[in-house]
């Protein structure tokens, strides 16, 4: 029995799957407006906007948010520079150990975060590095570099190498070639890689737990907040903000990579 239309059972199963994935997120949004603050009671006894004001007035939220944004921004910037350079080296030149380097760069994202976290923590304590924003940034950079690298290497592979030679042939030096040919051709890949890296860094918990010490990034702050009984919906308000802050770059990345299947510079 073959048919182009999905059967009713399949439709129900698909709907149930999607609900299972997304209903909890909707619940979080709903609880951001509840009037009851101690337990998550269903249905909410009433609706209010006061938790938005309460969140606004909490300095610890602002502190955690600030730290998270700072860490995400710095690790993304670092990843964009290192990841692009590494991708350029791997895809443009041949050298001894090139395949191994490519594997080693990708490895951190395959390793469980706990392993990366413990490894970094013991490294920091052996080297007697005190915990700071920079230790978190270092932890996040391990996986952010991979994201940017993967995006950039794919684009470099699809960009014909003779474009760079053509540019230099037409009188452009290295800097002009970078500005007028290389960057425009890899720009979307870089932006997409950066957005994904930012989103990943912004809500990372595991590696952060091991590298943050006493500092609280936003996701860590939320974990701590859940065990406290006071002003619970504040957490939900923050969760909503986190969803929006991470969703927007991911959507942006999706729209930017659509319709770029054609190979750049392959002019035959």
């Amino acid at each position: 029995m073959h048919s182009d239309r999905a059967s009713l059972k399949l439709k129900i199963a698909a709907a149930a799957g999607l609900l299972f994935l997304h209903l909890p997120i909707l619940l979080i949004f709903v609880y951001a407006f509840t009037t009851e603050e101690k337990s998550f009671q269903w249905p909410p006894p009433g609706y209010t906007l006061k938790w938005f004001a309460a969140t606004w007035d909490r300095p610890d939220v602002w502190e955690a948010m600030g730290l998270s944004l700072k860490v995400a921004a710095i690790s993304t910037l670092l990843a964009m520079i290192l990841g692009t350079l590494c991708a350029a080296a791997v895809s443009r030149t041949k050298f001894f150990g090139r395949e191994s380097i490519s594997l080693l760069v990708i490895l951190p994202i395959a390793l469980p975060g706990v392993v990366t976290g413990i490894a970094l923590r013991s490294a920091f304590s052996i080297a007697e590095v005190p915990f700071s924003t920079w230790t978190i940034v270092l932890g996040h950079a391990t996986f952010c570099v991979v994201i940017v690298y993967n995006n950039a290497v794919a684009r470099f592979r699809r960009t014909s190498g003779s474009l760079i030679e053509a540019s230099m042939d037409l009188g452009a030096n290295l800097f002009q070639t970078l500005r007028y040919v290389i960057l425009p051709n890899i720009a979307t890949a870089l932006v997409v890689g950066g957005m994904l890296a930012f989103a990943l860094s912004f809500d990372e918990v595991i590696v952060t737990t091991f590298t943050a010490g006493q500092q609280q990034t936003l996701p860590i702050w939320m974990l701590e907040e859940l065990v406290r009984p006071r002003e619970r919906p504040v957490t939900n308000v923050v969760a909503m903000v986190v969803v929006l802050v991470t969703l927007l770059p991911i959507l942006g990345a999706y729209y930017l990579t659509r319709g770029t299947e054609a190979v750049a510079g392959q002019g035959k």
């Binding site: 003779s162 474009l163 030679e165 053509a166 054609a262 510079g265 392959q266 002019g267």
Partner: peptide, 8 residues
């Protein structure tokens, strides 16, 4: 160039 190498 053989593949023309036009800037896409």
């Amino acid at each position: 160039f053989q593949d023309y190498a036009l800037f896409p």
